[in-house]
């Protein structure tokens, strides 16, 4: 019953699962690679890297080349610097979400939902006959004795897309 470790490991595994599920973040075959980068391709007219963007209806930007050779002119980043970026708002079917990513050097150390908006229709006030119990306190997962966690996890494509765009902002590879 005293097993704070369980939740931590489960969370980590879940997180790894998310990444594994969506493939390597820099892989060009992954749908993630067409993430909404804001950088435009270098003005080389002959490049084949800017092949027509496939699907990705919500992504308006040009396809990310994901070529690992982009040694850009961006300033060198300290390998231990902590940096954060908020990804693009992505439509997830019932609203919009954006993910905040924190990296230290080349490691992702934090993922948070920066904003979550539900669509208008779901925000309608419900005529409830049941008594509402508004819970305001939020328990941090750490430090509470639990054996396991239940909950819907953000592993949707919207989540992944938003993470990718945040990583792109950080020039994270």
């Amino acid at each position: 019953m005293k097993r704070p470790i369980t939740i931590l490991s489960a969370t980590t595994v879940g997180f790894v699962g998310v990444l594994a599920l969506h493939g390597p973040l820099t892989s060009s075959s992954s749908p993630l690679a067409s993430g909404p980068t804001t950088t435009t391709a270098p003005p080389t007219p002959t490049t084949s890297a800017t092949s027509p963007s496939t699907t990705a209806a919500s992504v308006s930007s040009p396809p990310a080349t994901s070529a690992p050779t982009t040694t850009t002119t961006s300033a060198p980043v300290s390998s231990t610097a902590t940096r954060t970026a908020v990804g693009k708002h992505e439509y997830y079917g019932y609203g919009e979400m954006a993910v905040k990513v924190t990296v230290v050097g080349t490691r992702i150390v934090g993922l948070q939902i920066a904003s979550l908006r539900t669509a208008e229709s779901y925000s309608q006030q419900l005529a409830q006959q049941a008594l509402p119990i508004l819970k305001t306190e939020v328990l941090q997962a750490q430090g509470t004795r639990i054996n396991s966690l239940t909950g819907a996890t953000y592993t949707s494509e919207a989540y992944a897309y938003s993470i990718q765009s945040a990583l792109d902002k950080l020039h994270f590879k």
Binding site: Q112, I113, V138, L139, A141, N147, S148, T150, G151
Partner: peptide, 12 residues
């Protein structure tokens, strides 16, 4: 069993 908070992924 902790129940994940629907709006705060790191909380219950």
């Amino acid at each position: 069993v902790g129940i994940r908070h629907p709006f705060e992924p790191d909380a219950m």
